[in-house]
């Protein structure tokens, strides 16, 4: 896992952040904090270190604690390093009814990690999350921005192999190709 981060936005990310701050009335640019944290998470390897959050505080002209308070409240922000792909399996009622537990078990044994852990090659982190508004496609999981629905063990295997083979750099909810001003 890459623990040392390059703490600065790319020019595109910075321009996008500025643009987003401009979407709120005069003096209310703090509103943009969540979208900018998404961008930061994408820029900084899938997670937010204190330095990363301080950087966000700096470009938004906020107190660092204001950023910490927000980042720690919302479940999408990782405050610890994660693998290149974060697998988020929905565990809530409707998905549970359709076998979400079995999917989690399957991934755990396939990757040889427990929920909350990262594979030793730094490729996958496994998380469970609450209902992602895809209950009709239960059981389901999200990887970066993509929803994978109607999962079976075989389908999970194919999906994971795909990521294993094609992921060179960390992917995140706000995909890199959408960081454009």
């Amino acid at each position: 896992m890459e623990n040392k981060q390059h703490i600065e936005f790319s020019a595109d990310a910075l321009a996008l952040a500025k643009k987003l701050m401009g979407r709120y009335p005069e003096g209310k640019h703090k509103s943009a904090i969540i979208p900018i944290l998404h961008i930061a998470q994408s820029e900084f390897g899938g997670w937010l270190s204190p330095q990363g959050m301080d950087y966000v505080a700096k470009i938004m002209d906020l107190q660092p604690i204001e950023v910490y308070e927000v980042a720690s409240f919302y479940s999408m922000f990782n405050l610890q390093p994660v693998g290149k792909c974060v697998i988020e399996v929905c565990r809530t009622g409707p998905c549970w009814l359709m076998g979400a537990e079995d999917i989690v078990n399957h991934i755990e044994s396939k990757l040889n990690i427990k929920v909350g852990e990262t594979t030793s090659d730094g490729m996958f982190t496994l998380k469970t999350v609450e209902c992602l508004a895809a209950c009709g496609g239960a059981p389901m999981m999200q990887v970066a921005e993509k929803y994978h629905e109607d999962l079976t063990f075989a389908k999970v295997d194919t999906i994971l192999n795909d990521y294993q083979n094609n992921t060179k750099t960390p992917i995140s909810h706000w995909s890199k190709d959408k960081i454009k001003p």
């Binding site: 979407r23 509103s31 979208p35 998404h38 479940s75 999408m76 609450e130």
Partner: peptide, 8 residues
């Protein structure tokens, strides 16, 4: 459009 951060 404004995205949230994950919180029911």
């Amino acid at each position: 459009c404004h995205p949230g951060g994950g919180a029911y």
